[in-house]
Design a protein around this nucleic acid. Structure first.
Length: 633
DNA sequence: GCAAGGTC
């Protein structure tokens, strides 16, 4: 045997970390079937570590079932998908099989989560085909640090097959459900000669579709919203050379408002009847996980979640930040926070601030989640603006800066904000004004993104007289709720358990790709196609689109992982449920596709100005849809 | 050509 053990990691960086930490810095890079691997000595033995890139195997249907036009999609519920090697993953299969013959022990150093356990059993399956006598152990580490890795090697575990079964069950049901409904919808509109371009399709998925539902739901709320007019008196009042704008809501009655204004106009001075202020403490944010990161990149930097994660991935590969896919919001005790923070004492604008918080002693904020696999996102290397700008571009710098500043914010003090309120009487109306002042910046100093705009009011006491500089009556109307922002959408997905930290941005992206919704000015706006799809499904089978659906599937699948239920039983139960939904949709599929065909034409219009059809600002969502419906009649 | 989940 060449190696005392072969270590298989989920990603190249972890394979390298095992070599570095266990080999005490001495290791040699080799290629096994083209896959970079590391050879090193550990406690008198010879080891090799190899890194995969996630899953190697996947499920697919037997070939004859992949002829869309020749197979009734319903049949997909009655066959078993088969395991296949993923595209591009064949080199890992060859490498693992070759290594299986060169050792008697394989150490499965995959991430410490169910998905890692699934990948572990893919590795077991592949390696034991080449060497049936191979023994497998699982290394369980919750951070890629020397301590955690050494500890994992000393406490090797048995692989947990139940967890892997849960993963494979999920793969099977997602494929069956997704493929059957996607084909049902796509084939139906194709039969009606829709404008759907070749290679495009209408998809359904247990994550993507509930996400679309949430976006459409907000659109419906906006449509149903009834605007109401109301009247507001706005006054500019002068106090010690300061001008404050104060207002009073006079309600919906225009005539009453006008007479109140007339009364107020007779007065030259308003009298302060209330002046109050209170200091509110604002805590710094908790350590950064993926969803929070995506949400803040969208809100603070106006960078799409998908792009933000891709940039973070690159920053990670170049060693600037830690692994960007994590649910954890608690710094592990092994992370040397002061060492990390002190990297930034060299930054020109905030260096002194970092020195100051280091001297005070660091008390990091702490969230509630710990995925036991990866620490919160934090900087791992210092970069200069000019350097990073040159190496990776402007957006990379902004993302990096956000990670750094967020990290420093979590080590900072609370901010103190004074909230002020003044009420002044003028004729019969009470005008009020609100102000805000940052009394103590605390973490706002480094985390300017979150700093509130200051609008301080002058210091006033009851009885002060304020000269009226101007007075006017404004007609305003109540506003419908805005379209969902991406950060709200991410928060909702998390609440309903739709997707994982690593995939949530994908589900948003899939909907955009399918032209189900667009993101404009950080808001998610459904297209006529997305809206029609949701409304149609809602009518025939609401259980398919309501956001609880993913959570329900997940809780059933969790019973496989816990050993309460057999995987085959759970798969059968979920398939049966969806088969019922499928029958309900299939029964109405002609009516559904008749509604879909015109809106497909609208979002895929060939006039080279597709966007115009998508953006309600230019055309109006409702106007657009009506038009195309009429055209059909 | 379908999904969602890893990862690049």
């Amino acid at each position: 045997m060449l190696y005392d053990a072969v270590i298989v990691a989920e990603k190249p960086a972890v394979a390298l970390a095992f070599a570095k930490f266990l080999g005490e810095g001495k290791y040699r890079r080799v290629f096994v079937e083209g896959v970079p691997s590391y050879v090193f000595h550990f406690r008198g033995g010879d080891y090799l570590s190899i890194g995969l890139t996630g899953h190697i195997l996947d499920f697919d249907f037997p070939r004859e079932y992949n002829e869309w036009n020749a197979v009734d999609p319903k049949k997909l519920f009655f066959i078993d998908p088969i395991l296949v090697v993923r595209e591009g993953a064949y080199k890992y299969v060859k490498a693992l099989k070759a290594l299986a013959l060169k050792t008697s022990h394989a150490i499965l150093a995959l991430d410490a989560d169910v998905e890692g356990e699934g990948i572990a059993f893919e590795v077991i399956r592949i390696m034991s085909q080449a060497n049936p006598n191979l023994e497998f152990k699982r290394a369980w580490f919750s951070a890629v640090t020397k301590w955690d890795i050494l500890n994992a090697m000393q406490n090797l575990r048995e692989p947990n097959e139940l967890w892997a079964k849960k993963v494979f069950a999920r793969m099977v049901v997602d494929l069956t459900v997704g493929a059957s409904f996607t084909r049902l919808l796509t084939l139906a509109v194709q039969r009606q000669k829709s404008m759907l371009p070749l290679g495009k399709f209408l998809s359904y998925g247990p994550c993507q579709t509930p996400v679309l539902y949430l976006v459409v739901k907000r659109e419906l709320e906006r449509e149903q919203f009834k605007k109401k007019k109301y009247y507001v008196i706005v006054a500019e009042l002068e106090a010690d050379g300061h001008v404050i704008t104060a207002s009073a809501n006079l309600g919906e009655d225009k005539e009453k408002a006008a007479s109140a204004l007339a009364l107020a106009k007779r007065e030259e001075f308003a009298t302060v009847v209330l002046s109050e202020a209170s200091i509110v403490e604002v805590s710094p944010p908790v350590p950064l996980n993926t969803i929070d990161f995506e949400s803040r990149a969208s809100a603070f930097l106006n960078i799409r979640p998908k792009e933000a994660l891709a940039i973070a991935e690159k920053l990670y590969q170049y060693g600037y930040i830690s692994y960007p896919r994590t649910e954890t919001t608690i710094y592990p005790p092994t992370l040397n926070l002061s060492q990390l923070a002190s990297m930034f004492t060299s930054w020109e604008d905030i260096g002194w601030y970092v020195t100051k918080i280091l001297q005070k002693g660091l008390t990091p904020t702490r969230g509630r989640e710990d995925d036991k696999a990866h620490p919160p996102i934090h900087p791992t290397k210092v970069a200069s603006r000019a350097g990073l700008l040159r190496a990776m571009g402007e957006k990379a710098w902004r993302v990096y800066e956000l990670v750094v500043r967020h990290f420093l914010a979590t080590l900072s003090e609370k901010a103190q904000v004074e909230k002020q309120r003044v009420v002044a009487r003028l004729g019969g109306v009470e005008l009020s004004a609100e102000g805000r002042r940052v009394v103590y910046p605390g973490f706002y100093y480094v985390y300017y993104y979150a700093r509130p705009e200051e609008k301080p009011l002058p210091y006033l006491v009851e009885g002060d007289r304020l000269r009226v500089r101007s007075l006017r009556l404004e007609e305003r109307s109540t506003q419908p709720p805005p379209y969902l922002s991406e950060s709200e959408l991410l928060a909702l997905m998390k609440r309903y358990g739709i997707g994982t930290d690593a995939t949530m941005q994908d589900h948003i992206h899939t909907n955009i790709e399918r032209k189900y919704f667009v993101v404009r000015e950080r808001r998610c706006i459904p297209t006529p196609l997305g809206k029609t799809l949701i409304l149609s499904l809602l009518e025939v089978e609401p259980r398919l689109v309501l956001p609880e659906i993913r959570g329900k599937m997940e809780s059933l699948l969790a019973k496989v992982a816990s050993g309460e239920r057999e995987a085959s039983e759970v798969v059968a139960e979920i398939k049966e449920t969806f088969l019922e939904y499928y029958e309900n949709v299939a029964a109405k599929i002609d009516a559904i596709s008749q509604k879909l065909v015109p809106v497909i034409a609208e979002v895929y219009r060939p006039d080279g100005n597709q966007q115009a059809g998508l953006f309600p600002r230019n055309r109006g969502l409702r106007g657009g849809r009506k038009k195309s419906k009429k055209a059909k009649e």
